[in-house]
Amino acid sequence: MDWSSYYPVLVATDATKPTPKEGPNADTRYSANWAPLMTKQVEVADIGCGYGGLLFALSPRLPDQLILGLEIRTSVTEFVQEKVKALRSQHASTGDFQNVSCIRANTMKFLPNFFSKSQLSKIFLCFPDPQFKARKHKARIVSTSLNSEYAFVMRPGGKVYTITDVEDLHYWMVEHFDAHRSFERVSEDELEADECVEVMKSETEEGKKVERNRGPKHVAVFRRLEDPPWP
């Protein structure tokens, strides 16, 4: 994965010429795999970022971390990418918003293509599509098998943040993460101390919409546990 166009200022300066990609998937015979080195890796992912409200709110609060929005709708992705570009040029003097970007992705299928093992410290699942019909439940962004994939790309101690106004979906997400042996639920006390929870409640477009309608906001956060030792 070549991230240089997404976070241009974070391309390693000494990497003037393409460096053969290293790591588990290196393939020396095919030059297409050469990508510029980056000084940082994406650590925070907003899956289904929509119009990017959360991304732009998190950017100043997590200045040292790379934040990536993943969105499946091409036109929405383009909107966010344009907004990133505009914000970066407006704040060119301060260098703000260099740590956010957005990519079009179907994370239900291709999450491991974007992130390597233990790469992420935070995943946000904000107001996901409730997919009410039982026939559509397989399209929900939280499921036992998908949770295994989230666990794979997350480092132990990392957190998955979920928020929804649909009680059904809230129970569904809690149930699935609780049942998954790689996650434990984070206590209410800890949530109050976590500024990301507040940002997630107030800064997402859906969050604002729910606010206007005085709807409920159900929040649940889960911590990635260490893998068990081999038997």
């Binding site: 998937n25 994406v42 992705a105 390597s116």
Partner: peptide, 12 residues
């Protein structure tokens, strides 16, 4: 075809 390229890891 983006995602076929996405099959690679992030350069370290």
């Amino acid at each position: 075809n983006d995602l076929t390229e996405a099959g690679d890891d992030i350069a370290e």
